[in-house]
Write a protein that binds this DNA or RNA. Structure first.
Lengths: 196, 196
DNA sequence: AAATTTGACATACGAACTGTATGCCAGATA
DNA sequence: TATCTGGCATACAGTTCGTATGTCAAATTT
């Protein structure tokens, strides 16, 4: 005799967890909803009732992972010495997190293909929001040149995440990762205000 | 009484052209192979004989578009004053080309999701090869800092193409495009060797 | 030049998947 | 206690891809 809402929340969580696994393992297109739901003792009925359709389920999963990433990166960045170092740390963190197959497959590959550009996701992409905030601060205090904050955030994130895809696809990720991080930091330096 | 090879080449070209349209219009997943083939007076028999499977067809289309992009960008870059300006022109060209829905949908969204990271495409991504060459030259002549050429090319391309996705998804692309280009050029400046 | 073979493409079939429409029953409500 | 709501299961319809088989024109051989 569980409460109604409680058991429903449990099922939602079960489905989300199963979807994370299934999407990461087989990719969005090849993930079978029948298999996914039965793996947690439910049927597609529960899925379509809770998430509307397959795309809705992906959207929820992307939202969850994206939030976790933003939280972690933001927290790491806040520990850095100054805000500029924080930005670099954040970027580095994105590169490293994107080596996780779950992040890569779901957020970087299938996410944009199925849901469209991250900037128009329901979650508005927490990752982008987070780095945008930092950028705004850095422009205000004169550390960064006066460029469009949104654009700068997009470029930094795009570069970082793309670098991660490259590292992950390379035959020797361990060797290539430091090169990617180094190049990212050098590149990001372009935004620094010229010292006069 | 056409020659065998000739009529086969015609059919291949017809299918490729139809696939470009269909993939761009509906996306890879939603593009029906029956509809696509019958639109040029053929059946799926011709398709599976020529391209193996649906993925093979996408691969061929991506290859074609990617080559066209690289050719155009490289040609434009070569007209610039010096090699550094050429790199910036190339990057700008990628941003502008990626506003084309065909490029965006097929090469930037569905391509990576279905075929994996561009660096492991059969074509090896002509776009990446092209900018990598320029980067190598610029490092050799001391214009750019000594970073890994592959990494630099990946970061620049990633930033540019990602910026384009952002511009295209924005409500007012015309207004946002110049901001993206400006930010890209500032960012790329990070790779410049420090003037001593 | 006639006969034979090849292979490019069409046709037919099977399996899988998504989304919807309907039914059922535990738990909420009165 | 009786009624009702709604979360979830079940059954069904419509598509789609990939393969296996057939066919006929064009190339090859004799």
């Amino acid at each position: 005799m569980k409460k109604r809402a409680e058991s429903m929340a449990e099922n939602r969580a079960k489905l989300l967890a199963a979807a994370r696994k299934a999407f990461a393992a087989h990719g969005y297109a090849a993930a079978s909803m029948d298999e996914l739901t039965s793996s947690v003792g439910l049927t597609r009925g529960a899925l379509y009732h809770n998430f509307g359709d397959k795309k809705g389920l992906l959207s929820a999963v992307v939202d969850q992972i994206d939030s976790e990433m933003a939280d972690y990166a933001h927290q790491l960045g806040a520990q850095a010495g100054d805000a500029w170092q924080g930005l670099l740390v954040e970027g580095t963190a994105y590169i490293e997190m994107a080596l996780n197959p779950e992040v890569q497959r779901i957020v970087l590959l299938d996410g944009p293909a199925v849901l469209g550009d991250p900037s128009q996701w329901p979650s508005q992409s927490s990752c982008l929001q987070s780095t945008r905030q930092t950028v705004v601060k850095l422009i205000a205090d004169g550390t960064m040149q006066q460029v469009d904050a949104e654009a700068a955030a997009r470029l930094l994130n795009g570069a970082a995440l793309n670098a991660a895809l490259w590292v992950a696809a390379s035959p020797e990720p361990k060797t290539v990762l430091p090169k990617a991080i180094e190049a990212f930091r050098v590149l990001a330096g372009g935004f620094l205000a010229k010292a006069n």
